[in-house]
Amino acid sequence: AGIESFTISERRAGHPGRDIDIRLTGDDAFKLKSAATEIVEALKTMPGVSAIEDDLPWGQEQFIFSLTPTGKALGLNVDIIGRQLRAAFDGYLVQLFQDRQDEIEVRVMLPDAERHNLAQLDSLMIILPNGDTTPLSGVVSISTRKGFEVLRHREGQLAVSVSADVDRSVNNNNTIRANIRENFAERLASQYGATMAFQGRAEDQASTIGDLKRGAVFAFAFIYIVLAWVFASYSKPLIVMAVIPFGLVGAIIGHWVMNIELTVLSLFGFFGLSGIVVNDSIILVTFYQKLRASGMQVNTAIAEAACQRLRAVLLTSLTTIAGLTPLLFETSLQAQFLIPMAVTISFGLAFSTVLVLLVMPAFLSVLESIRARVKTQVSGASEVN
């Protein structure tokens, strides 16, 4: 009895916070409540969404006082009325004294029989600025409305948050957010003056992805610099790094096969995958360079490098995949947030390994053909001059 909301939540891996956490800000609490109610009703119609709530609950019935023309003519204002009502019902502090370890307040207020009887409110005497008194009902009009239990603020504005949990086997967080943003953002802004923003997991995820984008630029730049230094070439590092996107394709296929959502941990795994895939390419390209340095023809060297380095490339990839396989089928809660990373590395590596052995020789052949053509044109131009 008396329970208005009862929620049971489970421990979840990943970013802290709720799956759906929408913040609305504005200037009017009642308009914000109406906007939040619309979003709540919309979320209730979406499959897999549960534990929907907002943090602007209705509170107790409130009395709304507004001055009448008579009250204004008598020199009263809202502040004067409010102070006298507070003194009458909450008490006016007249003295503080110490009783050993306790501090005792002495307040003057109406008797309990009058404070707890709303019928006495109309006859409460209000002191006028000139010292006279008049009944409260003669200077104010009283109305009632449902109030709020608590009002929250964000950056100086009233704010309300609508949150919910999502069953990932039924629906997707990002799909729901996109749906809400598309169907509600502009309409709530025009109808209620409410500004919508996503917080919680969505906010943390957006911040993390932004950091990952910057990190990816630096990571790939450093990989290119190291490869250019090792191969003493500006073009061969591009050939080696060309297999990285194929690893991403394999990672996406792996998430689809395992029925796992792409998460931020999946992106972390892609960084590790990039380094492993590059290692496979380095093994092949390095051996190819040695064969070319010994005087072997281009096509013969490419075929020989692919055949001779087949075992080394396969062993490099298979040992990594074998080490990650037990994690793919782990059921403990602690391992759940690591599984997307393991799926990215294992499936991406398996997919890209095959492509390293098939596509990398083709890339090398194209590169050498371009070099030979450019060399021929340059030498021809030199002879003409």
Rank of each mutant, 00 (worst) to 15 (best):
I244Y: 03
Q191E: 13
V230D: 07
L227M: 09
S190G: 03
N179V: 15
A197W: 01
Q205C: 02
V243T: 11
G254A: 05
A194R: 14
T208G: 02
A228T: 10
D204V: 14
V257P: 04
F184L: 02
E261M: 09
F246M: 05
A228P: 05
F184W: 10
K213P: 00
N259L: 12
I176M: 04
V170I: 12
E182H: 13
A185D: 10
R201Y: 14
A178Q: 11
G269C: 11
E261N: 13
E203K: 13
F218K: 11
Q199P: 00
S190D: 06
V166R: 04
K236P: 01
V226R: 05
F184P: 03
V264M: 03
F198D: 07
F220M: 09
N174D: 05
R181F: 10
P237N: 02
D211H: 15
E261T: 14
S233H: 09
V226F: 12
I209M: 09
I223H: 02
I176E: 02
V257G: 04
Q191A: 14
L227H: 09
A216K: 06
M258G: 01
V226P: 00
E261Y: 11
G193I: 04
I223C: 03
S233F: 12
S266N: 04
G269M: 11
I260D: 01
A202H: 12
A219G: 14
G200H: 07
A219T: 12
S235A: 12
S266L: 05
N183E: 10
I253N: 06
P237Y: 03
N259W: 08
R177E: 08
D167L: 05
E182M: 14
G210L: 09
S169F: 08
S169P: 01
A194S: 11
A178T: 13
L262P: 02
F220H: 02
L248V: 10
R214C: 10
V217F: 14
K213A: 07
